[in-house]
């Protein structure tokens, strides 16, 4: 479903992504982990071209993301993206935040968009907050709205860029729960996260990244119990240490 073919990216002299060749199958949940600055966020942001790449291809359902910009908007509308900082639109109510995408991009009428939005808000446990403004919500609630907003476009793929990193610890669980539900419904997902419990429980595969390279790809059990790459092994023992 998603294919990285020999992807390279530089920021000036600095190489942020280095020969990434990976695949994500439909319905698969991939968790990308690794130390800070290893290129995890950069990698996930190239998938819907929030970041450009200098070399290689990225394909979503066979369509090239980094080819022409002509179909980029249509392509992006089929890839849900959840940000670390939520990025809800503060001048719109929670309901409007979830409605705006389908209405402007997919030309849905207001009645249908509102119905879908209410269903999705109920799904993430925030049906009662439809008329609230984003700034009235806690971080965990805002992130759940952001997930509902992304789901409103009915994307076959969801990308999560450290969705719980900006949250207070007590709010991490509620967001992870929504993500677990999504995964169990068969959503194709790539998640950059430091939540190793989540990775272990939900991921079909784990990619370990360091210095812009995917060094290891493994099933969670194998990755956590018997990492093959020495840097992955060090990463896991560092996590265990505290």
């Amino acid at each position: 479903m998603i294919e990285f073919k020999n992807v390279n990216k530089w920021y000036g002299e600095y190489q942020a992504l280095c020969n990434v060749n990976e695949q994500v199958a439909a319905g698969e949940v991939v968790v990308v982990c690794g130390p800070s600055g290893s290129g995890k966020s950069t990698l996930i942001r190239t998938v819907n071209r929030l970041e450009e790449i200098q070399d290689g291809n990225i394909l979503i359902s066979g369509e090239e993301v980094h080819a022409s910009k002509k179909n980029l908007n249509a392509l992006r509308s089929r890839v849900g993206f959840v940000f670390q900082q939520f990025n809800l639109f503060p001048h719109m109510s929670v309901l409007e935040n979830v409605m705006i995408g389908p209405m402007t991009v997919l030309n849905r009428n207001k009645t249908d968009a509102a119905k879908t939005a209410r269903d999705l808000l109920a799904k993430v446990g925030l049906g009662h907050k439809a008329d609230a403004m984003p700034l009235q919500l806690s971080g965990g609630q805002q992130q759940r709205v952001a997930i509902a907003r992304a789901l409103a476009m009915e994307p076959p793929v969801m990308l999560f860029d450290e969705p719980t990193s900006a949250l207070d610890p007590e709010m991490v669980g509620e967001v992870l729960q929504v993500m677990k539900d999504l995964a169990s419904e068969g959503m194709t997902m790539i998640c950059v996260t430091h939540e190793m419990g989540f990775a272990r429980e939900v991921a079909d595969r784990i990619w370990f990244m360091d210095a812009g390279q995917v060094l290891e790809r493994a099933a969670p059990e194998d990755f956590f119990t018997a990492p093959k790459h020495p840097r992955a092994a060090k990463f896991i023992s560092d996590i265990r240490a505290h």
């Binding site: 929030l50 509308s77 993206f81 990025n87 809800l88 991009v105 476009m153």
Partner: peptide
């Protein structure tokens, strides 16, 4: 904030849609 534009564009909004619905209402206020 740049994240506002990114969130709008990541949904598939065009430049003009993003400006009209997301950026300008906040910028002008």
């Amino acid at each position: 904030p740049k994240g506002q534009v990114e969130a709008a564009r990541a949904m598939g909004m065009s430049y003009w849609q993003c400006m009209r619905k997301i950026v300008l209402p906040q910028a002008l206020f």
